[in-house]
Design a protein around this nucleic acid. Structure first.
Lengths: 162, 162
DNA sequence: AACTTCATACAGTTTAAACTGTACGGAAAT
DNA sequence: ATTTCCGTACAGTTTAAACTGTATGAAGTT
């Protein structure tokens, strides 16, 4: 039986957690680098710089730079200042669940809002057309689609409060 | 000013609704063909066959065949039988909001369940290792990750009831 | 001021998703 | 039984996302 020291075994576990947990985070519309990077920071007991990240994940520094910016934008990680340190340091924010939900819900709500505007614009165009059976049919459908968006908005707003 | 007859104007509106509404539906993890096809069926006053679909969307019949199968699987459209008709006919299901939410929530819950199992498996492996500070640290993180999944499960289950 | 060292912009490459066209098997029509 | 017509499997192509390597400019160091 092959001998494995504790450190190696823990490294394997570490890698497995990154691989598995990141799959869930990808469902929040994060790409693989973003998801894996978040889990890496989440599992780290101290802030990390871009070079450390790229070594852990075996990806390019550019990928790490892009991923940190997105995660910052989503408010999932934060930059940490350390005296005498030239490299940027980042750590995962606390309270996983709320941070992810908030970011996710916000992106949904933004998109829903945008799409409702677009549908309202289309509906407005319809009003300038003569009334016909076809016109009324489409108008009804657009109305229903807008109501669909309103329902979505409602359900995501409810999540937000919790 | 260019003359446009009613039919042309309505066709334009029709195309715009497909283009815009489908963007929202893509957020339910549908690909462009699936989303556009759903909206097409949604806007149609009668069931359509694959050839009609491909003409409306300007895509291949294979794309339509694949898209209908996915939409059927997600329970968003249904097949319609018509006497003497050899081609398969499909129509959009009623009650957009509930159908989409249900399908979406189900896919989230399935994935969460799968991921919780994976994390539990990893945690079990950890138990066979000697206790060290590092081990305890990772174990705590895995626990937190599992709790994160449990919270997700809860929030999506709540949506489901409504 | 010259030299390092960092993050990131940018162009190019790789990889994966989306889509197309052809071919095939099965069902219906002749 | 043969022919026609349908949906879809499959292989190949196109398109878009993800990622890499190099270049650049800004900030810190000597």
């Amino acid at each position: 039986m092959t001998y494995k020291n504790k450190a190696t075994q823990l490294d394997e576990i570490h890698a497995e957690v990154i691989s598995e947990f990141s799959k869930t985070l990808e469902m929040f519309s994060l790409n693989p680098s973003e998801s894996q990077l978040f889990v890496t920071l989440y599992l780290s007991d101290r802030p990390m710089n871009l070079d450390e990240m790229k070594d852990v994940l075996g990806k390019s520094k550019t990928a790490m730079s892009n991923a940190t910016r997105t995660l910052l934008d989503y408010n999932l990680i934060e930059r940490v200042w350390k005296k005498g340190e030239r490299k940027d340091l980042y750590k995962a924010k606390k309270d996983l669940y709320h941070k992810f939900m908030k970011s996710y819900v916000r992106r949904w709500l933004d998109a829903i809002d945008q799409q409702m505007n677009n549908l309202n614009t289309i509906e407005y165009k319809l009003k300038n057309l003569d009334n016909t059976e076809d016109r009324d049919f489409i108008e009804g459908k657009i109305h229903e689609a807008i109501a669909f968006h309103a329902s979505l908005e409602k359900v995501f707003e409810q999540i937000n409060i919790k």
